[in-house]
Simulated scan of single mutants.
Amino acid sequence: MSAQPEPDAGPAERLLEHNKKILELREAIHDAKLRHRLMVACGTGTFVMLLAIALPTAITWRTYDLAPINTVLVLLALILGLGFAGVGSIETPTELIDPQYPAKGRRRSSVRELELQLELAFERRLREAIPIDLPVRNRQFAYKESIPEELEKLRKESARYRRRHNVFQLLIIIGSIGNAGAQAFSDTAQPLKSIIIGLTMLVAASAGVSGYYKFRERSFNLQQTADSIEENTNAFHLGLAPYDSGDASVNLARLTDKVEALRVEQRRREQQLDPYFAGDRFRSVASGFA
């Protein structure tokens, strides 16, 4: 169980407790998002099963016997409904619920509430780290230890943008093929004209969204930054140039400078893709140790 840092503990021990709380909150947020997806999937599946039972039965009433099919659908709906109730009953660990910001009388915090507590945990860690006058080399070492986590964040964001790009490109391809096929029979039936209009709007909207948000370019830039950071980190651990100096502190300073330069360059590329981009996507971990 996670506990609040003891008042009589040393600054370093209290800082470790804050880091532990942050890691636990991140894991709880991941679990809460997974529960939300499962609840949506189970709830939607239950609704679809019930709809699949009601509509065909109403249409084919006293015409076809759908009892065998409806039995299977009822069992599926029951299983999905039980899954929805079971996932919804999972509670957030009580040690992660901040007594100052309770989950509104519930024992299960939402993703938004957990993210709020995570931000508060970041602020507490920052306030705890301010009085600690760490040497520059120690702060650089802590910065280096945060690189694997930053790499994971960069790759996840790159994969998300890549999936969005692939989805919109797939919509453009399918819409273009369907549009071309529908136009070949456009003179035969009036409904096909509506299909052509819909497919044309789908292709235009997909191309516009993909071109405006530049998912492919964002994914490429993020992946390129992650690869460059990983390349420099591996060179540092293997003692390759430019990290082949006999003085370890010099190599650590070079790595810190290079990684931070790559992050700054990534933020500049992000701003070039979106003129209205004002958020700092990558929080500088070193500021937490200043």
Rank of each mutant, 00 (worst) to 15 (best):
M1T: 05
M1K: 09
Q4P: 13
D8C: 09
P11G: 00
N19D: 11
K33H: 08
R35N: 11
H36Y: 09
L38E: 06
L38R: 11
G45D: 11
M49I: 01
L51N: 07
A54V: 11
R62M: 13
Y64A: 14
D65E: 15
A67T: 12
F84P: 10
P93I: 01
T94I: 08
L96P: 07
L96F: 04
Y101M: 10
A103S: 10
A103I: 15
G105A: 07
R108V: 06
S109L: 07
S109D: 12
E113Q: 15
L114M: 06
L118Q: 01
R124K: 15
E128Y: 04
D133G: 04
R137N: 09
Y143T: 00
S146A: 14
P148I: 00
E150L: 08
E150M: 01
R155G: 03
R155F: 02
R155T: 09
S158W: 00
R160V: 00
Y161V: 02
Y161N: 14
R162K: 10
R163Y: 11
R164S: 11
H165E: 07
F168C: 05
Q169T: 07
L171M: 13
I173K: 12
S176R: 05
A184C: 03
S186G: 14
T188S: 14
P191W: 07
P191A: 03
P191K: 08
L192I: 13
I195Q: 04
I196G: 10
I197G: 04
M201Q: 04
A204M: 14
G208H: 11
G208I: 10
S210F: 00
Y213H: 06
K214R: 14
F215K: 07
S219M: 06
L222P: 00
A226Y: 02
A226Q: 00
A226N: 01
T233Q: 08
A235N: 11
L238S: 13
P242W: 01
D244H: 05
S245R: 08
D247H: 09
L252Y: 00
R254D: 02
R267M: 15
D274L: 05
A278I: 06
F282M: 06
F282N: 02
F289Y: 15
